[in-house]
Design a protein around this nucleic acid. Structure first.
Lengths: 245, 245
DNA sequence: TTGCAGATGATAGTATTACTATCAATGATA
DNA sequence: TATCATTGATAGTAATACTATCATCTGCAA
């Protein structure tokens, strides 16, 4: 039962395809470890080069700059995640179950990880997940969003949101906010996980070990509650307090 | 009817209180304009100094570094926002109306702006609001969150969330996710506004002018829908699909 | 075997940034 | 008038984010 998830990336994301060479793969794998370790701002191509016994200039042959590398990693994650969504919802008919699975996938729960068994050459999805939580917003919160967007750099994220929005519409065909609902639940999953860990007073789930249910489980329940309460709500049941017109 | 909102800031946020001098106030006011203009990453103390006819070194006498200045601005905004919440919900008894007001305040809608009338020396809250949308997460998504948090730098945000959570509990005393609900709705308000403007396909509200209701109004309706559907939902009506135990 | 191409190594260099240090000028205060 | 705090003015440093150049190595095709 050997298979690999083939992720074909947008060519605008790199100068030379890092998956096409040993060095390129090391750059990607090790940058994930390094960023997960010290954070994106503190990561430099020099440190990365030292870590993988190459030179700064060689890394620049693969990635135009630091930011593009980040965007590449994030894009890879979204494509991987969309694949997981497809894979784990394919056999389901009930859109409600599909949505429930998606929430679990978003928290990286209960996913049999093919990549995890591929040995030293595998991408550490779990480390990448923690990068996405901490750094993903830096990929689009820039002065040059519009230009980056024009180059389709955020397409994987949009595709994922689009797919989730589609399943939302399967569940509730007349739901008028499918896309916003999808992007909101994804973002919420991530920064609530961040808050849980670093600013726990902004959440209702601590990070204490040995408490059941764990923070992660409570976060999952919260996300379920948010998502399904909105999708089940009668629309326009709740008029604005003052209807100015 | 002359009054000023006195905002007393945490002393850890600055080296010398910028509100205590003319230069300090110019640094704060003009940094807002500059960051709103070119973005936080592109802003440098040199550019800021040139703009206000002072020297880089003088700015460093007020703020330890660029990041602290950002944290200061964001903190100021949250304190200002909490004040607005207090002010505009004080006279209300119905917690539902209070929450509705809060959503409007979050989008900076329908707030009679005292600061706007204070002339050249006033903080441009509207510009600051756009900075908060684009840059606020950079204030806490750092390698040194924990240390910054220990210095209470994020207290204004926590206080605001705490206050909103309190009102949520007025509305629904048994709601188990008040704090997460509060932080989620605030974050959602902001990045949905961002997506609406820069990555509109992630939302259901365009930015086209001359369409009624406008994107902003639809965003407000979306937030209302999200918030009240979750607060009105019967809890545990929605058990997980598989209840593993 | 030669020769050539593509990838990498090795070294150097540049502009900018983020910050620090120093001292002189200024202006208010005691 | 002395002094004290603030700012101006200038200089400098270490690190960063790149770019340029050329040598070396490794297949591989003729």
């Amino acid at each position: 039962m050997e298979y690999t998830v083939q992720v074909r990336m947008n060519e605008k994301l790199f100068l030379r395809d890092p998956e096409s060479s040993e060095l390129g793969r090391r750059i990607v794998r090790q940058s994930i470890m390094l960023i997960a370790d010290i954070g994106f701002e503190e990561m430099t191509f020099r440190k990365l080069a030292d870590r993988i016994n190459t030179k700064e200039a060689s890394i620049y042959r693969y990635f135009e700059n630091k930011h593009r590398l980040l965007v590449y990693l994030i894009a890879w994650y979204w494509q991987w995640l969309e694949y997981q969504v497809i894979f784990h919802t394919n056999n389901l008919t009930d859109p409600r179950e599909k949505l429930d699975r998606i929430l679990k996938i978003l928290l990286l729960k209960n996913i049999p990880q093919p990549s995890f068994s591929l040995g030293a050459d595998a991408i550490d999805v779990s480390a990448l997940h923690s990068i996405v939580i901490r750094e993903a917003s830096k990929a689009y919160l820039t002065h040059h969003v519009t230009e980056d967007n024009r180059q389709q750099l955020f397409k994987p994220y949009k595709d994922l949101c689009g797919r989730v929005a589609g399943i939302i519409l399967e569940y509730r065909p007349d739901y008028p906010y499918a896309r916003s609902r999808a992007s909101s639940i994804i973002e919420t999953a991530h920064y609530q996980a961040y808050f849980m860990q670093y600013l726990p007073s902004l959440t209702d789930f601590g990070v204490q070990r040995d408490v059941l249910p764990s923070g992660e489980d409570r976060l999952l329940e919260f996300l379920r509650h948010l998502l399904f309460s909105s999708l089940n709500a009668p629309l326009h049941e709740l008029p604005p307090v003052h209807t100015k017109r």
